[in-house]
């Protein structure tokens, strides 16, 4: 039996969520006696394939083609299907990204597989899997089972433990050639692309801006905090709606699910749709002037105060700490 993990990458660099899922696959392989394979799809990604071996993949399947340079679902479905057809795994695991969420349904359909998204626990039952996943804006959890002949699961970020890489582990790299069909859709452009700073789903520290930041000036304060902390900036939907930040920064049910070591929410009330995206953070800090704000129910450290007074001092304190370090 084989478990195949599709790695996610950005600009040719494998994302940390891929290592998390790969670590989980290795763990499952010990329960099921399966062989762990990984796959990497993209353009100019071949060089990165080796690192997947350090996390325990025996073989890495690569489709490195210019057609995969910008994201459109059709070529990714074609490439992923080609790899799965060749490898014939029983279980396929994916990290979660907007791209993967986009192409997985067609893949499930074309392979006549069983698809379950957003898994946060996976157990091999002997003839299939039992998984747990959050639902209803992460207010509930369900347990599901599948013993289908081909099971495709996407994994919720931050749910699994990432193993330390072992550089002495080497994977066999296999390149696959794929013939891509003509596209029916036309890709035009990417608007409001990320500013190239630290990306939200990769960051160890995330500063989240809520409606409490009020305006561009308030936002600038948080950007400064993010800069001194080496953190990524995220936001609630309220801030996206106000046009202060692009939607790529939205954390939550309809935005990104993040799992940083440290999350600092400033002027964030803590609506379930928001906490659905950050509840997995290791340490949660909230700065809110309303002592009854729901975010205090999940915050490890809840600062009751005005962010406009607290954040400037916090910036100074962090600078001081960095200076002494």
């Amino acid at each position: 039996m084989k478990i195949l993990v599709f790695a996610d990458q950005k600009k040719g660099k494998v994302k940390k969520s891929s290592f998390e899922v790969l670590s989980e696959a290795v763990k499952l392989s010990t329960e099921s006696g399966a062989e762990v394979h990984a796959a990497l799809l993209g353009s100019g990604v071949k060089e990165q394939a080796g690192v997947l071996g350090h996390y325990g993949a025996k073989t890495v399947h690569v489709v490195d083609r210019p057609e995969l340079a910008t994201y459109i679902n059709t070529p990714f479905v074609t490439a992923a299907k080609a790899v799965i057809d060749a490898v014939k795994p029983r279980l396929v695991l994916f990290p979660t990204s907007e791209g993967i969420k986009d192409y997985i349904p067609a893949l499930v359909q074309k392979l006549d597989g069983a698809g379950i998204t957003d898994c946060c626990k996976i157990r091999w039952t002997g003839n299939g899997v039992e998984i747990e996943r959050p639902l209803m804006a992460a207010k509930a959890r369900s347990t599901m089972e599948s013993s289908h002949s081909l099971i495709l699961l996407t994994c919720r970020a931050g749910s699994f433990e990432t193993k330390e890489p072992n550089p002495s582990l080497k994977a066999e790299i296999v390149e696959h050639s794929v013939s891509f069909p003509d596209l029916k859709q036309i890709f035009k452009e990417v608007l409001a692309a990320n500013t190239g700073k630290i990306s939200l789903d990769e960051a160890d520290v995330v500063i989240a801006a809520g409606r409490g930041v009020r305006d561009a000036e308030g936002l600038k304060l948080l950007e400064e905090l993010a800069d001194v902390m080496g953190a990524a900036l995220g936001s609630t939907r309220a801030v996206v709606e106000s046009g202060l930040v692009p939607a790529t920064l939205q954390i939550g049910q309809t935005g990104k699910v993040i799992n940083p070591t440290l999350y600092i929410g400033c002027g964030v009330s803590g609506a379930v749709q928001h906490t659905a995206g950050m509840g997995n953070s290791k340490v949660i800090v909230a700065i809110n002037k309303d002592s009854e704000a729901p975010i205090f129910n999940i915050a490890d450290y809840g600062l009751v105060g005005d962010l406009f007074k607290v954040v400037p001092l916090l910036i100074e304190a962090v600078k001081e700490l960095k200076k002494n370090a």
């Binding site: 039992e130 599948s146 289908h148 490890d300 600062l303 009751v304 007074k309």
Partner: peptide, 23 residues
Amino acid sequence: KSSLKSFGLPPARKAGAKIEGDA
């Protein structure tokens, strides 16, 4: 192809310390 077995509640995250005072 897959079946729903049961529902549960997510593990609750406990409220930590609320810190009050001046900035």
